[in-house]
Design a protein around this nucleic acid. Structure first.
Lengths: 161, 161
DNA sequence: TCATAACAGTTGTTATAATAACTAATTTAC
DNA sequence: GTAAATTAGTTATTATAACAACTGTTATGA
């Protein structure tokens, strides 16, 4: 039997299709819909809080906040996005006057990114919203389950490296 | 302590930031990167097999295959996409001559979707590719771990309903 | 029955994802 | 020391995601 990526799981449970290898599971489908709902929830909460940030913009803003003064490539690596997307997302953040682009003195190919005052303020405003979502998303689950979940998720990640 | 959505997890392990509620975890970040890699893997495998389908087009094609003759709204519900996106994805599938749109006789608002011969053939061609990915993504993990994973993932999903 | 609400689908807009092709700066190798 | 390769970032293109606004069809209710 197997479950498949892309089909109806009938109220969260996989469809039994036919006798087959038990190792073939609809991981993609299951992950996809939860990821989609998490992202949409954050989008709505940011809007409800009158915070003018998309989820992706938040991810990048958060990355810059945690890194201090990363280059665009560093942001790309850390957020698992590619260079063109980072370039454009940073463009939006610059347009919103949240960050500053500075050409690196030693290597003029590089651009160092940092939050300005408004960026720091918006991060502080958005963080509690994100934090609340994290807590709610993890309701009814304990520390051990979290560890198991992370281990399995990372195993899947590694399996495809 | 908490882990955060959007930041560097340093080789798959969460960053320790400060003493805090243990229930706040970077679920979004962890799910996001694995989902992204799964999707990219399938994209590359379909390309390598010379199958002209995007992942989303595959998901919709697979849904139609499993449902027989769904309406567009049914496809939207089953794939967790919205009506406009389904409309456009179906547009691509029609352009590729893989599916047929038919106005419902009894309710002329509805459009019934079905695979044509070429669509069935392409499904048959793509399915083993998807199946192989599913098996590989689940390597080194057993049935019990799969069940645990699904349960936790669906709990997170429900937490945000 | 006729106005109104609900429903199914389409079109337009903005943002993200992935790839390709490009410029400019720096390193490397001969 | 200079040509070639590499690296950092940008721009262009196609597809998807989410939302708003729209057309056309069916159902509801006074």
């Amino acid at each position: 039997m197997y479950y498949y990526w892309g089909g109806n799981l009938d109220d969260c449970y996989p469809i039994l299709m036919e006798p087959m290898d038990q190792n073939a599971k609809a991981i993609g489908y299951l992950i996809d819909r939860t990821q989609k709902r998490l992202k949409l929830s954050l989008t709505h909460r940011l809007q409800a809080a009158n915070i003018d940030l998309t989820v992706e913009q938040w991810v990048v803003l958060d990355c810059i906040h945690s890194q201090g003064k990363p280059t665009q490539n560093q942001i790309a690596d850390l957020t698992f996005k590619d260079a063109p997307n980072i370039s454009r997302i940073l463009g939006h953040l610059v347009a919103k006057k949240l960050i500053v682009r500075e050409t690196d003195e030693k290597d003029r190919r590089r651009t160092n990114i940092s939050l300005n005052e408004k960026g720091v303020a918006l991060f502080a405003q958005a963080f509690p919203v994100v934090q609340a979502l994290r807590e709610e998303s993890w309701q009814h689950l304990n520390q051990k389950e979290y560890q198991t979940f992370v281990r399995i998720l990372n195993q899947v990640f590694e399996n495809l490296s």
